[in-house]
Amino acid sequence: MKLAVLVNEGPYTHQASDSAYQFTKAALEKGHEIFRVFFYHDGVNNGTRFTVPPQDDRNLQVLWSELAAKYNLDLTVCIAAAQRRGILDEGEMKRHGKDGNNIAPGFRISGLGQLIEAGIKSERLVTFGD
């Protein structure tokens, strides 16, 4: 089945990101296609490479990045939500005159149209969040 995943909460505060990761990984291992994982609201905070969780805990950003590399997964962060919360790639950094960027490997920043397109092109859109 062709699936899309929407992640609406950041890592650690909510289980949503863990659940979305486990679901996405399981679906891929079962041979399903993940059209896109879209990160919205505080979900954009999954896409910063600046998180440093304790070493005996899971690192959700790294898990997502590794999954993206293994399966050529499309991890899209909403640009409007990202700008509010300080998630920047190099292009956004230059455009807004900021002194750094923090987007994690495998993640890209794009518009909300990518979420609507995921809803249109996928057979199911699965939402994780409150």
Binding site: Y40, H41, A80, A81, R84, G111, G113, L115, I116, D130
Partner: peptide, 16 residues
């Protein structure tokens, strides 16, 4: 922020 960001999706989605 859910209500405001929901409205932002609705407005973008309207173009589709």
């Amino acid at each position: 922020i859910y209500a405001l960001e929901s409205l932002e999706v609705v407005l973008i989605g309207a173009a589709f």
